[in-house]
Computed example of a mutant assay.
Amino acid sequence: MSTKETMSKINAFRDARNWRKAHNEKDLALSISLEANELLEIYQWKTAEEGNLDREHLKEEIADVLIYSYMMADNLGFDVDEIIAEKLVKNGIKYPIKETN
């Protein structure tokens, strides 16, 4: 599925429930943070390996973070693939590969 198809499905889900009015940029930013904290909770008091065992819960929380992130990008008129590509270029400059001799 392409990013545009995913965004279309997210918006259709939201619009069918009349949730658009609650999905402004501020509230989406808050929701991203809250869902990211739910993702962290999976690992609280566990080793990484133990947390990784809860795969279904991990998938759900990662999906929630991504859904809210996609919605925020869409609200702001950002193309998700484009902004990720731009950020990878910036990160490549900021964190160059170090040659070892």
Rank of each mutant, 00 (worst) to 15 (best):
M71E: 15
E82I: 09
Q44H: 07
K87Q: 07
T47M: 00
N37C: 15
M71Y: 11
I62V: 15
A29P: 04
A22R: 11
A36F: 03
W19T: 02
T3H: 10
K26T: 13
K21Q: 14
E99K: 11
I84D: 03
R55V: 06
K46L: 08
L34N: 12
I42M: 00
L34D: 15
N91D: 13
R17Y: 12
A12W: 02
A85W: 10
Y70I: 12
N101R: 12
K46S: 08
L28G: 01
R20H: 01
E5K: 13
D64T: 08
L28N: 04
M1G: 05
I10H: 14
N18V: 08
P96W: 05
N24M: 02
D64R: 09
G77C: 06
L58F: 00
N11Y: 02
L28S: 02
E38W: 01
M7C: 07
S8Y: 09
L53W: 11
E38I: 04
H57A: 15
A36I: 00
S8C: 10
N24K: 04
A16P: 05
A48Y: 14
G51S: 10
G51N: 04
I67M: 13
N37K: 11
K4G: 08
I93A: 13
D15A: 13
F13A: 07
N37M: 15
T47D: 01
E35H: 03
N37W: 09
K46P: 01
E49P: 04
D79Y: 02
Y68A: 05
S31G: 12
K9F: 09
W19N: 10
G77A: 06
W45S: 13
S69N: 03
E60G: 10
I67H: 11
I67D: 13
E41Y: 05
M1S: 10
F13G: 03
I67S: 10
K90L: 12
L34Q: 14
Y68P: 01
H57P: 02
N75E: 07
K21V: 07
K87D: 06
M72D: 04
E38K: 09
N101V: 09
